[in-house]
Amino acid sequence: MIPLSWLVTLAGLLFGIGLLGALLSTNAVRMLISIELMLNAVNINLVAFSRYYGASQPHGEIAAIFAMVVGAAEAAVGLAIFVAVARNSKLIDIDKINLLKW
């Protein structure tokens, strides 16, 4: 039997690492990876609470499934954007991509 706190701690660590990566990374692909890590951390939380609080009503697991789908979609769109940006500007360093600037 695994205590819920272990699972939550694991999710927290994974989220923190993903966040750090997202904040520090200069590479767009790495930022994408970091975001996927954070999504996974969230999914761990969702599934864990769903298991421990409502095994017969697994709303959390449904949410996790939707989150996965959204994550996959996000990865696909992100990839497409990076490919387009890289083709146009030969850059992948997000610090130098400032199309959204004022």
Partner: peptide
């Protein structure tokens, strides 16, 4: 305020955090 709109995604993320 317009300086905040840096175009740097990392900055936006920071604000979000």
């Amino acid at each position: 305020v317009r300086r905040w709109q840096s175009g740097q995604i990392a900055n936006y993320l920071l604000s979000l955090v």
